Amino acid sequence: KWTITVQGEEAIKWAIKVAEARNLDYTVHIDGDQAHITIE
């Protein structure tokens, strides 16, 4: 299990796209213009 933090709307969209493309189980916690994405 690991967490990445991305900043900015484009980076958030990209990170989610990558997680979905790899069929990963993930949760997103949005904090202002940052998102913390935890991959199970």
Results as ranks from 00 to 15, higher is better:
Ala35Ser: 03
Asn23Gly: 15
Arg22Thr: 14
Arg22Ser: 15
Gln34Tyr: 14
Ala19Asp: 00
Leu24Ile: 06
Thr27Glu: 07
Glu9Gly: 07
Ala35Ile: 10
Ala21Cys: 14
Gln7His: 12
Thr3Met: 09
Tyr26Gln: 00
Ala15Ser: 02
Ile16Asp: 02
Asp31Met: 12
Lys1Phe: 07
Gln7Gly: 04
Arg22Asp: 05
Ile12Gln: 02
Ile12Leu: 13
Val18Thr: 07
Ala11His: 05
Lys1Arg: 13
Ile37Trp: 00
Asp25Gly: 09
Val6Arg: 00
Trp2Arg: 05
His29Asn: 08
Glu40Trp: 15
Ile12Met: 06
Thr3Cys: 14
Val18Leu: 13
Val28Met: 08
Tyr26Asp: 00
Ile30Tyr: 14
His29Thr: 14
His36Asn: 05
Glu10Asn: 10
Asp33Ile: 09
Ile4Gly: 01
Gln34Val: 15
Ala35Arg: 05
Thr38Pro: 00
Val28Gly: 00
Asp31Gly: 03
Ile4Gln: 02
Val6Leu: 08
Val18Ser: 06
Asp33Val: 07
Ile4Asp: 01
His29Lys: 11
Thr27Leu: 05
Glu40Met: 14
Val6Gln: 01
Tyr26Gly: 01
Ala21Lys: 06
Thr27Pro: 00
Gln34Gly: 07
Tyr26Trp: 07
Glu9Ile: 13
Glu10Met: 07
Lys17Trp: 12
Ala15Trp: 15
Tyr26Val: 06
Lys17Gln: 12
Val28Arg: 01
Ile4Asn: 00
Thr27Asp: 04
Glu10Pro: 06
Ile30Ala: 04
Lys13Ala: 09
Leu24Trp: 15
Ile16Gln: 04
Trp2Gly: 03
Ala35Gln: 04
Gln34Ile: 15
Ile30Leu: 10
Gly8Asn: 03
Gly8Phe: 12
Thr3Leu: 10
Ala19Gln: 02
Thr5Pro: 02
Thr38Gln: 06
Lys17Asp: 07
Asp25Glu: 11
Val6Ser: 01
Ile37Lys: 00
His36Ile: 15
Ile12Lys: 03
Ile12Thr: 03
Lys1Gly: 10
Val18Phe: 15
Asn23Ser: 08
Ile16Asn: 01
Thr27Ser: 09
Val18Ala: 09
Ala19Arg: 01
Arg22His: 15
Gly8Thr: 04
Ala19Ser: 02
Glu9Pro: 10
Asp31Pro: 01
Ala11Leu: 12
Glu20Tyr: 04
Ile30Glu: 03
Arg22Met: 15
His36Cys: 13
Trp2Tyr: 10
Lys1Tyr: 10
Ile37Tyr: 00
Ala11Asp: 06
Glu10Gly: 06
Ile37Ala: 02
Glu20Met: 11
Thr3Val: 14
Glu40Arg: 14
Val18Gln: 12
Ala15Arg: 00
Lys1Ile: 07
Ile37Asp: 02
Val6Phe: 05
